[in-house]
Nucleic acid binder design. Sequence first.
DNA 1: TACCAGGGCCTTT
DNA 2: AAAGGCCATGGT
Length: 279
Amino acid sequence: MRIELNGQNTHIYINQNEFNLANTLDCGQCFRWVKGEDDTYTGVVHDILIQVSQTENEIIFHNTLKEDVISIWCNYFDLDTDYKQIHQELVFDEPIKTAINYAGGIRILRQPSFEALCSFIISQNNNIPRIKGCIDKLCKKFGTKINDEYYSFPTPQTLSKLEKEDMQDLSLGYRDEYILDCAKKVVDGEINLDEIAQMDIVSAREALRTIKGVGPKVAECALLFGFYRVEAFPIDTWIKKVLQYYYKDGFPQQARPYAGIAQQYLFHYVRTCPDAPKI
DNA sequence: TACCAGGGCCTTT
DNA sequence: AAAGGCCATGGT
């Protein structure tokens, strides 16, 4: 993978079918990236503001040093993983193949675990545009200001000190107390995110489920998107329909090691492809 | 107006 | 163990 500083920007030369920025950021695995003019995306990861765009043959990290691309962004966008090999393991299955052909180049982001965990607690019985609004308000009110528009995701320490009344105008609904419980458990050590990252998936799942508002589905999302457990398999209302429609005899065993990646392709496909079966 | 959205909790069988 | 009502909120 060739990485070069080009003026103020750093470029990574990679084909769009190996990594697709828009598909990766718009497929429902993250909620905070903002699409600007000419398909440029701006986001905050940890406390770092970054602007990224893509042409057919390169990813462009705006105003970014080569060393930061190597040490931060290659990891976040999972660019060091060989997805060609993963795709080869998955395309034996027709629905997955169709989904990949529809919107290829999706990579599972290595998101900060606390942010992903909270985000998917908020996601329950909620829709994506509204989830984005909730998280945006949460960051603007309790995160650290980066500039006029962009804020970091709040720390567990900040959130743990709040009362439900402080969260009234975030429109979280009944989920506000779940966020408080999550933050408090992280701060008092009852939940240790670093330890969960090292656990086997069964123990990790069990630990996450002790947080109020974290059931089977949210736990799988946290594992997949917050801890990069690509074998985790979240079943939401969309995937439930996919399983009924395509996989009456169960999800194929051969796809299990990358079930989370397959799931993300299928999720994005059935939600957004006009030609996808109405199920 | 009812139903839905990347569900989970609590109570009742 | 399984089923069903309820939980806030905004969009369609």
